[in-house]
Amino acid sequence: MSEIDEGLRAELQRQGVWVTSMQELYNWGRKNSIWPLQFGLACCAIEMIATAASRYDIARFGGEVFRPSPRQADLMIVAGTVTKKMAPQIVRLYNQMPDPKYVISMGACAISGGPFKQGYNVLKGIDRYIPVDVYIPGCPPRPEALLHAFMELQRKIDSQKLTGATKAEHLTAAQPSEFPVPAFGEHDLEPPANPNVFQPPKVEREG
């Protein structure tokens, strides 16, 4: 699949011929119909609801079809504090979503545990168990921030290749689309993080 020369395409368009590629058409359709999974965990969900309502209107980006079933959803917006009791259910929902699937980690809690980070009951970020595409900081992030994340995700989808060595990860058979669900342990979740998904930053001490 070769890239079309922009000048040639513009010239052809002037003559009434619209040239595209399978990849562009496919990604154009995908990025403008991202259906989010309908669930919220905490106060960030209120901002997510505001984003979906008329003032901010996520329908302008094709994301208004919040699905009540993971089997029909493309995008998981983790909106709020992920407690350790809730984390296995989040991973299970993610596993039930069909590929290609994307995750937005919305707000300080979903990123790192936020203000509750050292709490005994709060997960230190959903990226310990599932891969995250876009992180939005904020407590909670404003609807504009969620729209920005949505546009970033659209940009990512638009740039994904369908073939070749650099094709999208979900098109590689070896790439896992399901991740192990953590178990409830006696003191903590087991394991506390999935090492294949998450590695804490290393603090290197020199000298």
């Binding site: 350790k84 009791k85 050292q118 005994y120 009951n121 230190k124 409830f184 342990g185 006696e186 003191h187 903590d188 506390p192 993080a193 804490p200 930053p201 290393k202 603090v203």
Partner: peptide, 26 residues
């Protein structure tokens, strides 16, 4: 009611020590 059934500790006791899940802190 708040923690899972398999949990054995009582987190609000003053001598509670949480599981050592330290990762890193900037």
């Amino acid at each position: 009611i708040l923690m899972w059934d398999e949990f054995v500790d009582h987190p609000m006791r003053k001598d509670y020590r949480e599981a050592d899940d330290y990762e890193y802190e900037p």
